[in-house]
Design a protein around this nucleic acid. Structure first.
Ligand code: FES
Ligand code: FES
Lengths: 138, 138
DNA sequence: CTTTTATAGGACTATTTTAGTCCTCTATTA
DNA sequence: TAATAGAGGACTAAAATAGTCCTATAAAAG
């Protein structure tokens, strides 16, 4: 089981790269694809999700590209993961609880739910800004 | 992203059920399948993995079935997850680090590795025994 | 010693998720 | 109005997950 899928990996790489320049710099997808190693068409989908989530803004046309819509210091890793991969859940039931039908006594819901909270808290502690600063040190 | 897949879910349900009786009770697969809601043939595969991991022991033939090989209080949720699903990792690289080739500066490895440790620690804190005791309370 | 009961284990299939491609459309600006 | 850059949907490929099936083997009862 991998917590971070390829699309989130690409997203984090792109965001950290962006955080290493001035926040209002516009980065065309081609540049982000090159630096992240992601196929450009695939990265575009990822960026669209970050856009929909309000993490980045995009501009079309000549001189267009991607820039931050928020300060990288307030963009949490959780936010990025959820934007590109969808919800982080302990099991299917914590995504849509219709799955629980007929199992109201389920031990997962009753006993492991707390782990979900602890996990999301962990992912909320790291921000793109802190990652970028640590990444730029030797 | 779901932390706990169906096979682990079945495993935990079966183990908690087993923990509610004396530790040396032998439970045939049919019984475990009925109580967990898992298809018997599928649950057999899960049990085989728990057996290989030393969590349960199995006996063939008449009167055979599954019983604990360790005290439920020392069986951690992490152990169960790893036995049936395989390793818990932050991304592919933390499963086999051959994936990192050419990306020695990767921000995931450098900055998010700690989250992996924190997550496995969380899963190590809960044991089958504690789950069973909590599950049997109203 | 053979029938019955129960797991072992491998090959196979189906379904879902993840990853990636492609094509047409629209916005921007030189 | 041509060139550039993202939007967005339909499509395909690959991998992981979930489940089935069939033959073999072990244990105990008769
Ligand atoms: S059946 Fe829904 S949490 Fe277990
Ligand atoms: S390339 Fe291996 S941890 Fe990122």
């Amino acid at each position: 089981m991998e917590l971070i899928k390829r699309n989130t990996d690409y997203a984090l790489r792109a965001l950290v790269h962006m955080a290493e320049t001035a926040n209002d710099t516009i980065h065309p997808l081609g540049e982000l694809a090159a630096v992240t190693g992601a196929p450009e068409t695939f990265l575009r989908k990822v960026v669209q999700k970050l856009d929909a989530a309000g993490v980045v803004a995009t501009r079309r046309g000549r001189g267009g590209g991607v820039c931050f819509q928020k300060d990288p210091d307030v963009i949490t890793v959780l936010e990025v993961v959820e934007a590109v991969q969808g919800p982080v859940a302990i099991n299917k039931c914590f995504v849509s609880n219709r799955e629980c039908a007929g199992r109201r006594d389920c031990l997962i819901r009753r006993n492991l739910g707390g782990i979900q909270t602890d996990l999301t808290d962990l992912l909320r502690e790291a921000t793109v800004g802190t990652l970028a600063r640590r990444a730029s040190q030797a």
